[in-house]
């Protein structure tokens, strides 16, 4: 197949990369939050918190930047989605805010009730954030009611349709798996043993969710699978995705946690790839009138802006990747609690 490689397509890719980066990075720290309450000991919980301590707010910056890039490149999508999903999105913001507050404040006081309260806050915030991100993705894939001005005309409860809810559940399972592997990588001793024993369960839970999500997409969301029917070669991506998932328990079994984590990252990357390919060139599908859909052309900024922003991205993104990598390198290895720990 030939891709029309114009600025709009490139920006579709860049926005996709930024959101994939967000999913991979914040995905594991949200996942750590989802699993947080499973360990009861204060010491273990602090290890969990500190495994994401130096990186979580940097990870959230990917969301901020993804939002900014979406605003700059596809303002119509930015405006339609965030005003249309107003209440759902506000809930997501509250969940993220509350979660940040919980991380910051949890270990500041020694009282049991204090820590327990923020631990619950951390888990609820992480769970709700992951769920709502999945619901949003589900709705964007399924399609929402838009009018000719691209304004959302549906209600709040429509967004909580079964497909979207299932995508929310799947996202929670995905992040939990990803976070679990990350924790295995960052812990040691008894705690690590316990966490490693959870990995397989999280994988099974995710695969079950994912299988149901895939089948319902194939059955009920035909526009998402068109491209795979038309160009069977794109199936390679799905195949790579399956191999990546299958590789995780193998690496865990061999005790190679780092490779397991990389496999998990590849799983998420390929999932985003499949989602992006399925959506392309649409950005928000309109139902029942597909004609009102937002795509990379009718939702985009001017060619001049896309060009300027491409220069910004070409200068900035390599820098971003370089210092993200160096931070992860410096903080590699097992978590140790120190005076400046959470």
């Amino acid at each position: 197949m030939t891709l029309p490689l114009d600025l709009n397509t490139i920006w579709f890719g860049i926005v996709g990369v930024l959101f994939a980066g967000y999913a991979i990075l914040d995905g594991f720290d949200l996942g750590v939050g989802i699993l947080h309450l499973l360990n009861k000991e204060d010491h273990d919980r602090r290890i969990q918190l500190n495994s994401i301590g130096p990186v979580w707010d940097g990870n959230e910056v990917w969301l901020v930047t993804g939002g900014g890039a979406l605003f700059a490149a596809f303002p119509e999508v930015y405006a339609t989605v965030f005003s249309g999903f107003y209440l759902a999105f506000m809930l997501l913001l509250f969940a993220l805010l509350f979660r940040a507050v919980a991380i910051e404040f949890r270990s500041k006081q020694p009282m049991r009730w204090w820590r327990q309260m923020w631990d619950i806050g951390f888990t609820v915030g992480s769970f709700l954030s992951s769920f709502l991100i999945g619901v949003a993705i589900g709705n964007i894939a399924w399609g929402v009611r838009l009018d000719a001005q691209h304004e959302y005309i549906g209600g709040f409860w429509e967004l909580l349709n079964p497909y979207a809810i299932w995508m929310g559940v799947t996202t929670v399972a995905l992040f939990a798996m990803h976070g679990c592997i990350y924790l295995a990588l960052k812990t040691e001793g008894e705690l690590q043993k316990r966490i490693r024993s959870w990995v397989n369960n999280t994988i099974i839970a995710f695969i079950m969710c994912y299988a149901i999500a895939s089948f319902s997409t194939m059955l009920y969301v035909p526009h998402m699978v068109e491209v795979f029917r038309a160009y069977p070669v794109t199936g390679v991506l799905a195949l790579a995705n399956m191999f990546a998932i299958a590789n995780i328990p193998r690496e865990i079994h061999k005790g190679r946690d780092l490779f397991a984590f990389i496999s998990s990252c590849v799983t998420m990357l390929t999932l985003m790839g499949i989602f992006g390919l399925g959506m392309f060139p649409h950005l928000v599908v309109s139902l029942p009138d597909m004609g009102n859909s937002l795509n990379i052309y009718n939702a985009a900024s001017s060619q001049k802006t896309l060009g300027i922003m491409l220069v910004v991205a070409l200068l900035g993104v390599p820098l971003v990747l370089a210092y993200t990598a160096s931070i992860y390198w410096i903080f590699r290895g097992k978590v140790k609690l120190e005076t400046h720990s959470y």
């Binding site: 930047t65 900014g68 890039a69 700059a72 900024s301 922003m309 900035g316």
Partner: peptide
């Protein structure tokens, strides 16, 4: 406006 905001994020 979006451009300035995106530049802020990236840089």
């Amino acid at each position: 406006f979006g451009s300035a905001l995106a530049a802020e994020g990236i840089f």
